[in-house]
């Protein structure tokens, strides 16, 4: 029996269906990300779990109890909002203590617990600060402490890192994940940032226009996307349109590529996906001849845009310390057959 279950959750706004009958089972202690572009229904789903929106149909079941119609103030879930939603008229400590006060915890105890919670997020010395005197990262931590101090069965995070700058965001990812694992709190994260989802989650739910495209662990999702939407949205990829000309052969612009085609009949239109880092690029005369159109140094790697008879391709190669290829160079691309994924139909 799973800990948190969405049972055919559906939300309509007038004629617009924001979430189509979504079902999902979340295990206790699991970290799940709802990932998708804006308007895919991920935030709507989160708000239905939080009780801030009521579903048009379907159920939310927490620990065996149907909480679909429980008001948000009786659910006891911890929520970190995108804007942090701190109470501007209360100090950090009072913000964190508020939820405990609502639960009737005595003053001495709730101040102590709020203090501990702020220590936990490394804000021990800022307890008396007001939100407006704190940085974005500090506010974020207060919001997190406020949500966690009530020891919620489920922690809901609505794009919690999107208002932070890039460096801080990466640090917070690690910190948040460690904290979540230490506390063992079941967590649902809503994000449009695929890196964030990949780096923090046990499982990722990719959503598109109110539908679930794929549910998988990060590595599976990255290596074995079910369709070209997922493969394009999660990480960078090259998508090539082709046709199955023979068993295990796909022709892309008249070039025969070997790939496992067992799911597709001969003559079918298919799309091939290959990630930029799966190529090996060299000057040895072997593989697909290409010409370098653009060469960008990224620090840890080189990013190339190359022209070939198969079309334009993006290629990344690790930085090994020596100069990479330059614009106009000729080179050859090689790859392993398993690096290619085949999707049915002509998909954009």
């Amino acid at each position: 029996m799973s800990f948190l279950k969405f049972d055919s959750l559906r939300k309509e706004f007038g004629d617009f269906v924001a979430v189509h009958d979504m079902s999902l089972s979340v295990e206790r202690g699991e970290f799940i990300s709802l990932l998708g572009p804006s308007g895919c229904g991920k935030t709507t789903t989160l708000q239905m779990v939080a009780g801030l929106l009521s579903p048009t149909s379907g159920k939310v079941i927490l620990d065996g109890k149907d909480i679909t119609n429980t008001p948000p103030n009786k659910r006891g879930l911890g929520i970190v909002f995108q804007s942090y939603a701190l109470f501007p008229h209360m100090s950090a400590l009072d913000n964190v203590a508020f939820g405990l006060e609502m639960r009737g915890v005595g003053k001495a105890e709730r101040l102590e617990r709020a203090h501990n919670a702020l220590n936990q997020v490394k804000l021990g010395q800022f307890v008396d600060r007001f939100p407006k005197d704190m940085s974005g990262g500090q506010r974020q931590r207060v919001a997190l402490a406020r949500a966690l101090v009530i020891e919620p069965p489920v922690l809901l995070l609505d794009e919690p890192l999107s208002n932070l700058d890039a460096k801080l965001r990466e640090d917070m990812r690690i910190e948040l994940r460690l904290l979540q694992q230490d506390l063992g709190v079941t967590t649902i994260l809503v994000t449009h940032d695929q890196e964030e989802a990949l780096s923090m989650s046990d499982r990722i739910v990719v959503m598109q226009q109110g539908d679930v495209s794929q549910v998988a662990a990060p590595l599976d999702l990255y290596e074995r996307p079910l369709n070209s939407f997922v493969s394009d949205f999660v990480g960078k990829t090259n998508i090539l349109q082709g046709k199955v000309t023979d068993k295990n052969v796909v022709s892309v612009n008249q070039i025969a590529v070997s790939v496992n085609t067992e799911a597709h009949v001969v003559g079918a239109d298919v799309a091939l996906s290959i990630r930029p880092e799966k190529f090996t690029m060299s000057s040895d005369n072997a593989g697909l001849p290409v010409r370098v159109k653009a060469s960008i140094f990224m620090g840890a790697s080189w990013l190339y845009s190359v022209e070939s008879d198969m079309g334009e391709l993006l290629v990344t190669q690790p930085n090994t310390g020596s100069a990479g290829f330059a614009r106009g160079d000729s080179a050859y691309l090689a790859w392993e057959e398993g690096a290619l994924t085949v999707f049915g139909g002509v998909q954009a």
Binding site: P72, P88, M102, R103
Partner: peptide, 9 residues
């Protein structure tokens, strides 16, 4: 911030 207060009980 009002939603946050509701969610805190």
């Amino acid at each position: 911030s009002e939603d946050a207060a509701y969610s805190l009980g």
